[in-house]
Structure formats: C-alpha cells, structure tokens
C-alpha cells in the first residue's frame, strides 16, 4: 500500500513542555541536544548522579536537580522538602549517604516572605532528618510574570558506601525487580489539588527521604544490589525503561503485583491517567541478584518507608530495551516510555 499521508512531522525547533516530561522527548533532548555538546564517561551513564573516586577507597556521588512544582505547597509536602529529598534521593540511588547541599532560589517578585520562611523551615527539617547541611547558596529575584512563584535548584554531594557499586552496567538477566512501595501518590496529589478534586481520605504526596531505607537495603544486599532508580518524573514506566535501555536488557513485570492505593487508583480513573506514568517522590526500584532478593525484600519491609515493598518482576535477556507487563491471564503488553506529557483523555 502506498502511504500518502500529508500530515506533518513535528521537528521540534522549539522546546515544548513535553521535553520536560521525563519521557521519550526528554530522552531525545538529552541524547540529541545535550550529550553531543557535553558528553563524557560520567554523563553517558545517564544515571541519577555521577560517582567519582577521590582517593581509594573514597568515592563521592554528585548530583543536581531543579524543582518547579506548582503549587509550591501541597498535601504531604512542599517545594522545600522536595528540593532536599529529591537531590538526596538521587544521591541515595548512587549508593551514597547525602552529606552536603547547595541551595539556589529563584523567586518571583511578589512572593510572600512568609511563604519563603515556610519553605526554608521545611528545608531545615529535611536536612536535619538526613543529617546533611546546606553549605552554599544563591538567591535571585525575577520580575513578576517571569517565574512561577519560586523555583529551587539544589546540588548534592554524598559519600558512596564502602563495597557498594550501583550502576546500570551491573544489571543482569535474572535480576529481581523490587519496588519500595505504592505508586503515583505524589503526582495524583498534585493533580487532584490543581483540578479541585476532593476525596474522603486526603491524597498525600509520598515525598520522603529514601536514604535511611536505601542504607538498610545496601547493608543487607551489598554487592547483590546491581542498580537502583527512584521513580520520579515519568513514573515507574520511565524508570524501568531507562534501566532497560541503558543496560540493554528486557524487563518483564507482573501487572497484578503493582501496588496502587485505592484512592489513588480512583483518582487516576477519574482523571484518565495511568499510575505507571505518574510521578513519585518517595519510591524506588532496585534490581537485585536473585540470591539475595528475599533478604533485601525483608530488609525493605522492616523499614516504615518500605513496608509495602514487593517484587514486581525480573530482568530477562530477550527484547532488550523493552519493558513488558504480563497480566493475570497471560496476555502481555509493552510498557512504553511516555512520549511527552501525559494528557488527560476526552472521555
């Protein structure tokens, strides 16, 4: 058949919101625009942070993240907590104890001082919990209309635990995939707030500091922990796809094993969204050798942040780069990386 579609291709001469959605467009921006200019051994791993040796055996992890959440205050957290936990969690995903943080604030003219104080109190609380310090910072104010209230950037430095090596390169067929808890709570909490949805029980963001749980996992699993990734922007689907792509392995997950709280599922049904693609701020997946997966899972469940942890699937040698879900009656489907933003459906 001759294809005569005259419809346009999108050439993306400009940035669209989809480029920031954590899905395939974000990947294309990184691999097509950023990496060609800046690539090096550290960047090309495309991990949550870079790990580099200082003086054997000391290894540092280094990462940065920007926070543009709107609204800045939401049930279960605020942009302050998020800006500490987000960066600290990226360090944790490198197997590193978070130590030091930089803090850059970009504030829009008109933002209330009281609001700023609240955010700083949250930052302080989060730092105290993790025993880390903000050691340098910067403040900029932009004209009204040139920012969305407040943007925060934090950069973190951490020390990798001895004997731990977390890298997509270590992922092997047979690795078990463990998820630390139920999905989609952060994204659904924010979206319900924006849409004015009200539920009998409030939907709280899962914003939390993962290091205490990650440390327990690393101490139990040691070298058996091959790779970890927090399922933030783009959700679990993006985290798994990124791992499958960078390790050139296939991933099979069991759809029935995915934990989603009932109220979150309900909100997703109402809003027409798939929980697999919705952001989390306190959940991670670890890819673990089959020999130690049971011990690691029980270590997770002993910790309050990991009490709903479960095994959701495994790494396979077939279909490299593709994540597949199997449902209860044996049918399979591809869990694709989202294209741009997740867009609510008409009906």
């Amino acid at each position: 058949m001759k294809v005569a579609c005259r419809l346009p291709h999108s050439d993306y001469e400009i940035i669209t919101l989809g480029h920031g959605g954590g899905g395939r467009l974000s990947q294309q921006l990184i691999s097509g625009v950023l990496l060609p200019k800046l690539n090096n051994d550290y960047l090309q791993e495309l991990h949550d942070g870079a790990v580099f040796p200082i003086a054997d055996p000391v290894r540092l992890a280094f990462t940065t993240d920007s926070f543009v959440v709107s609204p800045p205050f939401f049930p279960g957290g605020d942009i302050g907590l998020l800006s500490v936990y987000g960066t600290a969690n990226d360090l944790a995903m490198c197997g590193a104890r978070p130590l030091f943080l930089s803090l850059a604030l970009i504030i829009e003219e008109g933002f209330s001082i009281h609001g700023l104080e609240q955010i700083l109190s949250s930052i302080r609380t989060a730092c105290d919990l993790l025993e880390l310090q903000v050691v340098t910072g910067d403040t900029k104010v932009v004209e009204r209309g040139k920012g969305d209230g407040i943007f925060i950037n934090t950069t973190g430095l951490g020390a990798v635990l001895d004997g731990i090596e977390i890298s997509p390169r270590r992922i092997r067929a047979g690795d078990q995939i463990l998820l630390s808890g139920s999905l989609a709570e952060h994204g659904v909490s924010i979206m319900s707030l924006r849409e004015g949805l009200k539920f009998d029980s409030p939907l709280l963001s899962d914003t939390s500091a993962l290091w205490p749980l990650v440390e327990a996992v690393l101490r139990r699993g040691g070298q058996g922990i091959h790779s970890m990734r927090d399922a933030t922007r783009g959700g679990l689907a993006s985290a798994l796809n990124e791992m499958a792509l960078s390790a050139r392995v296939g991933i099979v997950i069991d759809e029935n094993a995915l934990p989603v709280r009932e109220e979150v599922q309900g909100a997703c049904e109402i809003l027409g969204l798939d929980p697999l693609y919705i952001a989390n701020e306190g959940k991670f997946v670890s890819l673990v050798s089959p020999e130690c997966s049971e011990q690691v899972l029980s270590a997770m469940r002993e910790h309050p942040l990991g009490r709903d942890a479960c095994r959701i699937g495994e790494v396979v040698a077939g279909h490299p780069g593709v994540v597949v879900a199997r449902n209860g009656f044996g049918a399979t489907r591809v869990i694709d990386m989202i294209s741009g933003e997740q867009l609510p459906r008409i009906c």
Binding site: S10, G272, S339, G340, E341, L343, P344, R345, I346
Partner: peptide, 8 residues
C-alpha cells in the same frame, strides 16, 4: 481536552 493538544 488534553488529548487534542498533540493532534497534528
């Protein structure tokens, strides 16, 4: 509606 956004 959201899904009209990307229709070429």
């Amino acid at each position: 509606y959201g899904d009209m956004m990307r229709v070429p």
